[in-house]
Design a protein around this nucleic acid. Structure first.
Length: 209
DNA sequence: TGCCAGGCCCTCTTTAGGGCCTT
């Protein structure tokens, strides 16, 4: 099985019927971008029919209606296509624990496993942008003046913004902390550190001027 | 009947509680 290139990752975002696959919630939309060498090169965006009516709250929250989902293919078809899209690349999501739970639950239903590791833009942002008003995706997009078309709570739009946030954090690690070429693995290690330990941790990797 | 996510992270902490973040 091919391994993920070191400079390649997939940033993904699910829209779902609720917060917990353990409570019967399902995915209703998956959006993702493939980033290669710091550039978004491919996009994936599909609605999927969970097999039951979604709540009025989710319709209002996402703008995805039951009518839209009635015309969408079932989850297993979409997730099989998405499995081919992510291949074995490393993965990034904002509050990755949430998206990982749904990815694992949907892949389990089609008996698929993936090898990529998950990185969390929320946990990195909490350490790098401690002065931000909060660490919601929308707030961070405004705080860092990241590209956006103003669409929120749709899977591809959120995945694109999360991708730009990830790239911005890599750039800030270079410019603000003096790191030569921060890796996915370094950002994962960073999320294990307390906020107070961030400067000391990053200084170990800084290139001396 | 009553309840209902789960993990991170801070603090008036660690034998706990509550806010944040995702839909």
């Amino acid at each position: 099985m091919p391994q993920s290139a070191a400079n390649t990752l997939v940033v993904l975002d699910f829209e779902t019927t609720g917060l917990s696959p353990n409570q019967g919630d399902r995915a209703i939309e998956i959006g993702a971008v493939l980033i290669e060498d710091g550039v978004i090169t491919q996009r994936f965006s599909e609605l999927m029919n969970p097999g039951f009516k979604i709540s009025r709250f989710i319709e209002d929250y996402t703008g995805i209606s039951n009518q839209m989902l009635s015309d969408a293919p079932p989850c297993d078809e979409v997730m099989a296509r998405f499995a081919r899209f992510i291949a074995n690349h490393n993965l990034v999501a904002h509050n990755a624990a949430f998206d990982q739970r749904f990815l694992d639950a949907e892949f389990a239903k089609i008996r698929h496993r993936y090898l990529g590791q998950f990185g969390c833009s929320l946990l990195v942002a909490r350490r790098l942008y401690q002065a931000a008003p909060n660490h919601q995706l929308g707030t961070l997009v405004r705080y860092k003046q990241l590209p956006t078309d103003g669409t929120f709570h749709r899977a591809l739009a959120d995945a694109e913004m999360t991708g730009h946030l990830w790239l911005a954090m890599l750039a800030d690690l270079k410019h603000d902390f003096g790191l030569c070429s921060p890796t996915f693995e370094l950002l994962q290690k960073l999320t294990k550190k307390s906020k107070a330990d961030v400067p000391r941790f990053l200084s170990q990797y800084a290139v001396k001027a």
